[in-house]
Design a protein around this nucleic acid. Sequence first.
DNA 1: ATTAACTGCAACAGTCTTGTAGCGTTTTAT
DNA 2: ATAAAACGCTACAAGACTGTTGCAGTTAAT
Lengths: 192, 192
Amino acid sequence: MTTKPLRADAERSVRTILEAAERVLSDNPAASMEQVAEAAGVARTTIHRRFANRQALVDAMAATAVRHLSEAIEAGRPETAPPLVALHQITVNVLRTKVSWAFALGQPAAPGSVVAGMQQRVAYRCLELFGRIRDLGVLDAEVDLEWTRRVYYALIGESLHGDDAGADPDVLAGRIIDTLLRGAGPRRPETR
Amino acid sequence: MTTKPLRADAERSVRTILEAAERVLSDNPAASMEQVAEAAGVARTTIHRRFANRQALVDAMAATAVRHLSEAIEAGRPETAPPLVALHQITVNVLRTKVSWAFALGQPAAPGSVVAGMQQRVAYRCLELFGRIRDLGVLDAEVDLEWTRRVYYALIGESLHGDDAGADPDVLAGRIIDTLLRGAGPRRPETR
DNA sequence: ATTAACTGCAACAGTCTTGTAGCGTTTTAT
DNA sequence: ATAAAACGCTACAAGACTGTTGCAGTTAAT
């Protein structure tokens, strides 16, 4: 099921196209292949050589993006590092990945596809981590972990929008985790 | 600057078109005018009679949607009702509005447009309410109100996605507010 | 009842986009 | 060095969508 290995220059082209497509399509999801080609510094026919359809291109982008996302999570050592440290590091890594692959990661994955499988796996890793954090007593014992995960995703997404979207990822991650764990209510006197 | 008042049937058509367009475009933002017309039970040319461009249609949808959103907020009596009661009621109303106008409300408003102005006004009403809630001591005294508002928006948006998107709005609103105020961390012993 | 507005239908021109094909040139692999 | 692979370029076919126009029939307002 593996395709013949591409020549070095071809592989470079594919990379360039995928990255250019992300830039262009994240700015305008309805952009034409021509615009993508121009942004990639490549002829439109070259894109069609590697990707039969527009859909094939988008699928490849989604696959690349979710792979990067997965790596961003693994790099945080969710199994071995102290859970809260891992959560912070993962959040930072994911923020970086999401700014670079906003469009591709926003694409809905076909139900049975490889990408969908990887997304589920990522979600599961996330749930595992939250479970470990809960066992530390930092998450409420009876909290809905799935809802917590969704809120976590939403907070990450929101952090990429406002004026502060370009701020230091460490700061953004801190705010995300603080909000996720404590909300906006009054801090406990002794915590302050 | 006001246009001539439309005849009764024409006004009905406009309504029908706007609602059909929302249904179709929320499912597929790239749908053609033809598909919108079919969903509205109307000839395509009728749409073009009322809306010069596709953009004009989308703008009208955005205007209608943000008007509904504004009404949803005012119906919660943010000025007069007890702040937390108002917050709950507003959340319920906004949830209902957002499911009906998901596409239109997701459209970015042109910087100087009327819609943009109304969005800002809505955001301001929201900030006012949060300010009042903070003064009750239910929000942390030093919390970033603007960030709180953005988190509130994000939680509402997230509530419309999962399997429970169709659940009782009162329940969803309760979860949103609980998460916003307390986060996912452990509850205080005496609160439980 | 009469008028004006509105709608459906059919047809049309114009544009944009996609996808394919051929050919000469450049780059890579061995 | 040579052969295969990849690329840019041009051209073309096919289709989709948009926006407009004209006309005949229907509906609402006075």
